[in-house]
């Protein structure tokens, strides 16, 4: 089986003022990667016009593009419209589901979505008390369950989880610990560890660090643009020759 080259980035926060800038940086990406994964916060305010800029910047590439939305993309309550226009532009958008892309006969399965917060084991919110608190925690719990099922259903040679929120604390180092519960949840890691994956990609934590690992041993990479400081980073999933 050949090696798979996964390009990944998150938090590109595009808008009219950045039209054309990101595209220039990813021209020729097909020489370096087999697929591009984009981990949410595609826009600044989640407006339809910003969504159009994203669609223009990411469409028509010679390699498949798979994306999820982030919290910014929900801000104007046009998340569904943004998903639709990205899909119309040929981008695979995961909304708590899985998809398989084929690269020279190698099947790469990607499952995920926006994700959500709640915190990390031992220091996290519980589904207890006021309805608002319960709804917050339940939202993450339901997402994690959908991801677990999506991962299980993927029929692929390699599996990746693509998220906006973080599954672990490791990649939040640099962020104030007080806001960790708003940056991710251990439940996302638990879902991935239950079914297994080769890699977990996320963004959201602009001041975090790139590399971490789930309790079950899945490599985690925070690819927020301010963290990786490059248009994308390439991760190679080894084939027989590595």
């Amino acid at each position: 089986m050949r090696e798979l080259r996964i390009a990944a980035v998150a938090d590109i926060h595009l808008g009219e003022d950045l039209r054309g800038h990101y595209r220039k940086k990813i021209e020729g990406i097909e020489r370096r990667a087999d697929v591009l994964l984009v981990g949410g916060d595609l826009t600044r305010h989640g407006t339809i016009s910003e969504g159009r800029v994203v669609a223009e910047e990411l469409s028509g590439l010679p390699i498949p593009v798979v994306a999820v939305l982030g919290n910014h993309d929900y801000h104007s309550d046009h998340d569904q419209e943004i998903i639709d226009l990205l899909r119309d532009a040929g981008i695979v958008v995961l909304d708590d589901e899985g998809a398989v892309v084929s690269v020279d006969g190698v099947r790469l399965g990607i499952a995920g979505g926006k994700g959500f917060g709640g915190g990390f084991a031992g220091k996290c919110a519980s589904e207890f008390g006021e309805p608002e608190t319960k709804a917050f925690v339940r939202h993450t719990k339901e997402i994690a369950e959908r991801w677990r099922r999506a991962l299980k259903d993927l029929d692929a040679d390699h599996k990746i989880v693509l998220s906006h929120y973080s599954p672990v604390k490791d990649t939040l180092m640099g962020e104030p610990p007080e806001i960790y519960p708003f940056l991710g949840s251990y439940m996302l890691a638990e879902a991935a560890d239950a079914e297994g994956a080769d890699l977990f990609i996320h963004g959201h934590a602009h001041a975090g660090t790139e590399k971490g690992v789930t309790p079950g041993g899945i490599r985690v990479r925070n690819v927020a643009l301010p963290v990786i400081k490059h248009a994308y980073t390439v991760y190679c999933l080894n084939g027989d020759d590595c």
Partner: peptide
């Protein structure tokens, strides 16, 4: 935002 950097082999 720089051009893509080095690859990581996992």
């Amino acid at each position: 935002v720089r051009e893509a950097g080095e690859e990581e082999h996992l």
